[in-house]
Amino acid sequence: MNKTKQNKIIDKCFGFLGIAATLFGLIMLLVFIIDVLSDGLGRINWSFFTSFPSRKPEQAGILSAWVGSVWTMFITAMIALPLGIGAGIHLEEYARKSRLTNFIEINIANLAGVPSVIYGLLGLGLFVRYLQLDRSVLAGGFTLALLILPVIILSTREALRAVPFSMREASYAVGATKWQTVRYQVLPAAFGNILTGIILAMSRAVGETAPLITIGALTYIAFLPQSPIYFSSGFPYLHFSLKGLFDPFTVLPIQIFNWVSRPQKGFFTNAAAGIIVLLGLTLIMNTLAIILRHHHQKKIRW
């Protein structure tokens, strides 16, 4: 009798500790968000998005930062998605289990845990110096692509692995080839989870600062990379250009980092506003990922 009572008390204690641990994280986050909101919300207006950084805090904006972020994200996605998904499909569906594939698998898992500064150093050596891309948006996009590549490979594989074996059997049994099975059965079934992984990886990339600072992304930029599509008054009116890829750039987190390190109070407010924009962006991406996952789970039950 005494024993059960004691167990009940222990049970209660653990329950309480668990709640406390959960609340701790939530409360810290809440405090942080409220703090940032109260500091920066008032600063967010249209001109904040359409102005270049400036020496005067009231006139400074995040135009070059968010445009740079969009550029790098686009390049990152163009590189990391096909490579990552392709590698994931190969490793999960095609590669025979061997010592080599084992070795590769372990290393990909390790790569996903390498600190992002190291990727910055790799980018600096490989893209900026060796390939002479300089501190361009292209070098930045490539570096972030390398950074999230292992994450995308891993999440793609996980998504493929979640597709039941019986479905592959069913497809092979009616005489489908491996490619048909992967293309028409496995990939569609895994699509939602793959997409979720991609969005989470991208939302990580959008907030990365260290590797881009390492490759030398500028902290003060008052122009935009040349737009890939632009108009002119003379023939042929519409132009395409990839020159912008080689222009220097900055991104949101670097702009924030730059403002935080300034002494004036006004820049502090700007930093808070920038953080709100960045937070909002990652929040939207994560919500999208959750909605997709949920939607996918509802659509496919096995």
Partner: peptide
């Protein structure tokens, strides 16, 4: 035809 039904989703 398999032991457990396995229609495609």
């Amino acid at each position: 035809v398999f032991q457990k039904p396995n229609p495609f989703p």
